[in-house]
C-alpha cells in the first residue's frame, strides 16, 4: 500500500503538465516579459501565445489547445479598466464566465481552465501564477486519457 502511494507520488512529480497561455499583448505579455527581464523563475510548463487583446481570444483557441493535447489553458489580460481597446476584457469576461461552465459540464473542469488579470507591472504575479497553476495541474494529473476534445486520428 505504502509502496503504491510512493509510486503515485513519483508519477505525479514526473508528470510535466502542458499548459497553453493565451495572453494579451498589452498587459499580461508585458508582465510575462517583465518576469523574464527581472530574472524571476517560474516553471517551464507554460507555452505563451500572444494576441492583441483578450477580446480576441476566441473559445475556438481554447478548444484547439485541448485538441492538441494541452492539460490546461490559461487566459490572461489587462485588469478591468486597463484594456488598451477600452472594453475588450469586459467582453472577454462575459464570454469566459459562460464558456467555463460549458467546458466543466463536458469534462474539462476548473482545474484545467484558468483566467487572470496580470498587468505589465506584475511580473511577480505572473511568475507566482504560473507556479501555482503548474502545481494545481500537476496535482490534477494528465487530462488524458479522458480528454474529450483530443484529436485521435
Amino acid at each position: 500500500m505504502a509502496q503504491t502511494e510512493t509510486k503515485t507520488a513519483e508519477a505525479a512529480a514526473a508528470f510535466q503538465p502542458r499548459i497553453v497561455a493565451f495572453v494579451c499583448n498589452w498587459c499580461t505579455y508585458a508582465g510575462a516579459d517583465l518576469a523574464g527581464t527581472s530574472r524571476l523563475r517560474y516553471p517551464p510548463n507554460v507555452r505563451i501565445i500572444k494576441l492583441p487583446c483578450t477580446g480576441r481570444i476566441d473559445p475556438l483557441f481554447i478548444l484547439k489547445a485541448f485538441e492538441g493535447g494541452a492539460d490546461a489553458v490559461l487566459v490572461s489580460g489587462c485588469h478591468p479598466g486597463d484594456c488598451h481597446y477600452t472594453s475588450g476584457n469586459y467582453h472577454a469576461r462575459r464570454r469566459w464566465a459562460l464558456f467555463r461552465r460549458l467546458l466543466d459540464l463536458t469534462g474539462i473542469d476548473e482545474r484545467r481552465l484558468f483566467f487572470s488579470w496580470v498587468s505589465a507591472a506584475e511580473g511577480q504575479k505572473f511568475a507566482d501564477l504560473v507556479a501555482d497553476i503548474t502545481e494545481k495541474v500537476r496535482a490534477a494529473g494528465p487530462l488524458e486519457p479522458a480528454n474529450p476534445a483530443r484529436r485521435r486520428l
Binding site: 473559445p59 478548444l63 485538441e67 459562460l98 463536458t106 476534445a149 484529436r151
Partner: peptide, 19 residues
C-alpha cells in the same frame, strides 16, 4: 471529420454560439 476532435469542437461551439 465525424471524429472525436471535430465532433467535440462542433458541438461545443454550436452550443456556445447560442449562449
Amino acid at each position: 471529420a465525424a471524429a472525436q476532435h471535430g465532433n467535440f469542437a462542433w458541438q461545443i461551439i454550436r452550443a456556445f454560439h447560442q449562449a
